[in-house]
Structure formats: C-alpha cells, structure tokens
Design a protein around this nucleic acid. Structure first.
Lengths: 129, 129, 129, 129
DNA sequence: GTGGTCTAGACCACC
DNA sequence: GTGGTCTAGACCACG
C-alpha cells in the first residue's frame, strides 16, 4: 500500500511532524476511509526511509487523537470518528494557520485591505497557478 | 523605556522567537524609528521576566539581519535601513504566514471559497471585533 | 453449539484474554457442566470471527488450568473439577478485580466512604439498571 | 526533589505505565500542586533506575493529557487544570476499576450481596488493616 | 543545565 | 507476520 506522503529533508520541521500533518490530512479529508488498514510500521518506515521509531510515534500520536486504532498482532487502522468530529479536525489546523497570518499582518500594522490583497494573491497562486 | 512586547507562556513557540518577531515588527513598521536607543539587555530581560541569554540572542539575531546596531559601551540602536529593504522585511513574514495557511487548506482539500470564508471571518474578528 | 461470548473490538484487552475470561466464567459458574463438549477450534474461531490460533491458545490455557480436557480426535470437554476448586476459581477473578479497584481508590486518596459510594452506584447500575 | 513512586519489577505492567499511574495520581489528588517543577527527565530516570526514554514517555503522555507542561530549556511543570477537570481525572480511573470488578462478578453470576461482601472485605483490609 | 529529535537494535506479546 | 516495551547513545535547540 502506498501513501502520498512527502518528506522535506531541508525543512526545519521535525520528521515525525511532517508525516503526522500529512497523514492526519489524509484521514480527516476522507482520502483514507474509516477502517482502512495502514501499512505496518516497518513498511512505512522503509517507504519513507526513516526509523521505525519515528513512524511508531506518528501512529501513536494519531491514535491518542482518536484518528487511528492499533491492535497488537493485527495492524493499524483508520478509526471510526463522528462526522462532526472529523470536520472539526479538518478545519482546526486551517483556522489556526489563518489566524496566525492575520495576527502577523496586524503586528506590522497592515490595513485590512493590504492583508486581504496578499491573501488573494496567495489564493490565486495556489488554486489557479 | 517601555516596549509593547507580550510573552505567551502557553505558546509552544520559543521565548526568543516570540520576542524577536514582535521587536522586528516594531522596527520594520516604523514604530521604532531609526537611531532609537533600545533598553539594555539586562533591562529588557527584567522587563520581560526572562533570561539575559534570551534577550542577547534576540539582539544578536536582529543585528545580523541589519535591523539593529550595537556600539561598544553605548548600547543598541535601531539601524539605518533603506525604505525598500524595510518594506520587504515588513511584508515577508505576512506573506509567508499567509502562504502557510493556504497550504494547510489545500492539504485537507478545502475549496477556494471555503478557505476564503475562513479568512474573511478571521479578518473581521481581528479588525472589527 | 452456541456460547454467550462477546468480543469488544474497542477494548485494549487482547482477544485471547477476553475469550478466556468469559469461557472460564461459563465453566466455573456451572453454566457449562462437567463433560460438556465444546465447539471445535475451527467452529469457535468462525463463530467469534477470530483466528484459529487465538482459540487454540484459549483452549490450551484453560486445559493447563485443569478446566478443560482435550481427547485426541474427539474434541474438547469441560473437565471434572472438585467443587472446592471450582469455587476458588469462581471468586478469584472477582476478588482480584475488587482489590484493584480499592487500590486505585487509595492511590488518589479516596476516603472509604467515597469509594464505597462509587461502588454502590456501580452495583445499582449493573443489577437494577 | 523526591517523588513517592514505587516500581514493581515483577509486575507484568509496563514500566512506563506504572510510573504514569502513580505520577498522575499525585497530580490529580493535589499532592503535587499546580506550577510545581518536576525533576528533570535525567534526574527522575536516575532516581527510578530506568532509561531516560521511559521517563520522557511518561512526561509526554501526561502533557498530552494536559496535566503537565514542558518548556525546552526550562523543565517540566504541573499544569494549570480546572478543578472540575481535575476531579474528573481523579475519579475516572477508580470508577473504571470498580466497574470492571462488578462486571467480573456478574460474569460468574455473583449475587449483589455476594459481591458486596467481597468488596466490604477488601475495603476493611485496605483501610483498617 | 533543560527538553526534543532521531537513530539502531533487542526482546516480548499477539494473531 | 503484526505492534509494544525498553535500552543506549548521539546530536540539536532553548535558557
């Protein structure tokens, strides 16, 4: 089984965190359906060329968030989560990132229009580019 | 001399980083004019209730960015920076934060409208709230 | 032949252990009489939708406790056990679980009354609810 | 700084779990007040004669439960938690253990009186013994 | 000094 | 085969 997860060696972000963010996104956006069996820890470690321990941490963190479910001897599955909870998870990270951006703008005394312009530019770059 | 810098103990961001961001914003947005004498390292550390080491790091970082200038025995001043350079600095952090937010949105497959709505909400919260 | 054994997929307890506890309870409480022929390993595995290995482990464990007896080619039977031995088995698990509960209460400095109240509530929930 | 934590080498319970249970109990029962600085990871590892990693896991788990707060370079503190939340934490483990005990009793068809008797015995043993 | 990340590798329990 | 625990040790970031 293959997962669309990219690791950026250059990034300052910890390895485990990069993986976590992307795997969480796959789950909460419904690209990995409830009940899906994920690759084993060893497999994913090999795929991502990182240590078993790093993958273990990812699975463990997401399990403690209630998004994954592991059973010894069986494997790791996408957990059953209420739709409402899923939506909350899905938008939480976005809302926080947007809030950070606006806060950064206010800090350097951007006007509402000024920051909105920057935002529309970014939006066009990502969605039309 | 007082500086409008707030430290958030709860935040996961390192102390030095929180201070750096805010002090940089004060400079590049013109709230601290060229030539202004900043508090001494010891004074600022006392004001912010943090370690001297932390403040030293902030001053050093901003000096290496060319925003501050330290004179032996006199103190630390806001450096002379070209207006063009200043503008670049001013918007750089905002642009990056905005880009992060849009990237986060794309990761969980938000539509352009969906993320725009979140953004307008944040904008209203911060500017009209 | 049907056995009233429930598997809880959500529980952290290993599969084999859940089955063992319930099957043991059926025997020591007399709900499965001495000499009763149990389902074959394959049958029970099918009934419980679990692995044959898991059921084999259960039968082996209970046989080594002297509660089951396997005859080559015939099947697995409830063994002959002295009444005294049966009673000991029957209460052993309960006594241990109760002891754990009281220990947990002491750990967080519950008073005798406090923990007794919790216990009476649980008792009412299970027996009158 | 000393912490009243006992490790049972013989127990089947994982090391990290034994430590977690006891440290959590110290916090939620108020024996470690809000804001208390805990021993450093290295210190506690030495005190308990276990690996640094084991202690790290304990601190990390309790932090993700919101009971601890760590800051790099500073140390690990008892977090600020609402009293209501604290009470919930405090009794949750007890309620669960008591429920398990009653369930175990029902499984072997104990009467209400029978299990109550076992419970009162345990209570007397622990509190008057 | 503190905690945070990542590694390699051993051994056990479960299915 | 699977995940779970525990170890030792290196290196980095923060204060």
């Amino acid at each position: 089984m293959w997962l669309p997860i990219q690791i950026n060696e250059q990034s300052a972000e910890p390895l485990y965190y990069q993986i976590e963010v992307q795997l969480r996104a796959l789950i909460v956006s419904g690209q990995l359906a409830e009940g899906t069996l994920l690759p084993s820890i060893r497999e994913l470690a090999q795929m991502l060329k990182c240590s078993i321990i790093t993958v273990r941490r990812v699975y463990q963190d997401l399990e403690s968030e209630g998004l994954l479910r592991t059973r010894q001897g069986t494997g790791t599955y996408v957990a059953r989560v209420e739709q409402r909870e899923l939506d909350r998870h899905r938008l939480a990270a976005v809302i926080e990132a947007v809030d950070n951006a606006v806060t950064a703008g206010k800090l350097v005394q951007c006007t509402k229009d000024e920051i909105n312009e920057i935002f529309q530019e970014a939006l066009n770059k990502h969605y039309n580019g």
